[in-house]
Design a protein around this nucleic acid. Structure first.
Length: 264
DNA sequence: TACATTGTTCCGTC
DNA sequence: CGACGGAACAATGT
């Protein structure tokens, strides 16, 4: 699923493919899940792409912008002209490659319009500090989460607390930091917050490195491999202590943890 | 066919 | 009233 690293890779790709290029044609293949008219990009030059959490923002000449949330299965790909299912919109540039938004489940959403207006949307403004932000250390993370009894997992999944972590990231981060995903936030010691902040950085850097490229195969797609340390590996031995990993739904989402390294 | 899957939001409870 | 947490919602492949 597209979480922060996958969205960051999409940002780099869009930057490389589109920055400096003029949009020569917009082909909207599907009506659903768009707000604003993609045709308003026509004739405009792409200045660049930024990212906050899992949200992409493209800036174009004339004050036009694109806000893109990939949802569960969305991805931006280079369109080589071959047949491809689930294309929602296709952008043709003068000089650069053609680029397409592909989204099987259609949980992704795309807004096109005045870039200042897009930046005032809740989807952009409600986001907490980006999880890749250098200053995200233990104390800052603890203060963002706040003194709640709520399970850690639920708070880390809240994009207004820290932006960019999804279910997979939270499972991986909790394992790396040796903290139970359902630990009440008020029970987490300062040293554990430091480990959690470091684990967020380590996990994101790891996934960025492993998945960097023109197109990511999401877990669950055909021919997908699992690059994660514990996610999707219930009942397998813990890589740290060899105890069998436990898989169970926590906060309504599939979780994996080690009952020995991450005691509740 | 029913279900799994996600981020987000709603709503009931304490 | 704020904190909390279960559940609904979107859409579609298996």
């Amino acid at each position: 699923m597209p979480e922060l690293p996958e969205v960051e890779i999409a940002r780099r790709n869009l930057q490389r493919w589109l920055a400096g290029a003029r949009i020569a044609a917009v082909e909207r293949v599907d009506q659903a899940r768009f707000e604003g008219d993609p045709q308003s990009l026509l004739g405009h030059v792409c200045f660049g792409w930024e990212r906050r959490g899992k949200v992409l923002l493209g800036r174009f000449s004339g004050g036009v912008g694109v806000l893109s949330h990939l949802g569960m299965t969305g991805k931006w790909v280079r369109d080589d002209g071959g047949r491809r299912a689930h294309v929602r919109v296709r952008l043709t540039t003068d000089g650069g490659p053609r680029v397409a938004l592909v989204d099987v489940r259609r949980f992704g959403r795309t807004w096109v319009g005045n870039v200042d207006a897009l930046q005032r949307l809740a989807q952009w403004t409600r986001l907490g500090p980006d999880a890749l932000m250098g200053a995200l250390d233990g104390p800052l993370l603890a203060s963002r989460v706040g003194p709640r009894k709520t399970p850690l997992k639920r708070r880390l999944l809240d994009q207004s607390v820290v932006a960019g972590l999804g279910n997979i990231a939270v499972v991986e981060v909790c394992w790396r930091a040796s903290v139970h995903p359902h630990a009440p936030c008020t029970d987490i010691a300062p040293a554990a917050w430091v480990r959690l902040a470091a684990a967020i950085r380590a996990h994101l850097d790891f996934v960025l490195e492993v998945e960097d490229g023109d197109e990511i195969t999401y877990l669950g797609e055909r021919a997908a491999s699992n690059p994660f340390v514990v996610y999707g590996r219930a009942r397998q031995p813990c890589p740290r202590c060899a105890e069998a990993l436990v898989g169970e739904s926590l906060s309504g989402r599939p979780s994996v943890w080690c009952p020995s390294c991450q005691p509740s």
